[in-house]
Simulated assay, not measured.
Amino acid sequence: MSGTHSGVPSMVSTPLPNPVPAAEHEQCPVTDVLRRVGDKWSVLVIVLLGTRPYRFNELHRGIETISQRMLTRTLRGLEADGLVHREVHPTVPPSVEYSLTPLGRTLLVPLSALADWAVQHQPEIAAARRAH
């Protein structure tokens, strides 16, 4: 029976070697995606772009403490991963608009599930941290 139909999460039902080889961990697609969404700004940018397209400066103003350089790096990384689309409009000066790609939109579902889990379990996590 597959992990999908057994009630066991697929991550747990997939056997891993023991010890997990460093190269295998580094090449794992899950590790790769978690590096992207686990950085300081990517999830916030994805969530904002999930509501509508944004121009660069509008997005920059919408995230209080991000520098222009870091926003540019974050957007470039998300674009390289195929999650964000960058469109340059031929105006003077040129305006650039960012939006989620169809692939980027599919990431909103698991991110929402993670956010819901974090909110639901935040009191337990806070209590465990206090007890630690």
Rank of each mutant, 00 (worst) to 15 (best):
E58P: 01
I63K: 03
I63W: 05
E97V: 14
S99A: 15
L100V: 04
V37R: 01
Y98F: 15
P15H: 06
W117L: 12
L103W: 00
D32T: 12
N57D: 15
T51N: 13
K40T: 14
R61H: 12
P102E: 14
L59F: 07
L16D: 03
R36C: 06
S99E: 13
H25Q: 14
R76T: 14
D116C: 01
H60Y: 08
R86G: 00
P53C: 05
L107D: 00
N57H: 11
V47K: 08
V33A: 09
V84I: 06
V45D: 00
L108S: 09
L103D: 10
G82I: 02
F56T: 06
E26R: 15
T31P: 01
F56Y: 15
P15T: 12
H60D: 05
G50Y: 03
T51D: 09
G62M: 09
S112N: 12
M70H: 09
T91K: 11
P90A: 11
T74C: 14
K40H: 10
Q68L: 03
P123A: 04
P19I: 03
V43L: 07
A118W: 05
T65Q: 09
N57I: 05
H121K: 09
V109H: 07
S99R: 15
R105T: 11
R69C: 03
N57W: 04
G50F: 04
H85G: 02
A23H: 07
V45H: 02
D32H: 14
Q27S: 14
I63G: 02
M70Y: 01
A126M: 10
I125D: 00
R55M: 13
V33W: 12
E79G: 01
F56P: 01
G104L: 07
D39R: 07
R35K: 14
R86S: 12
F56I: 04
R105E: 15
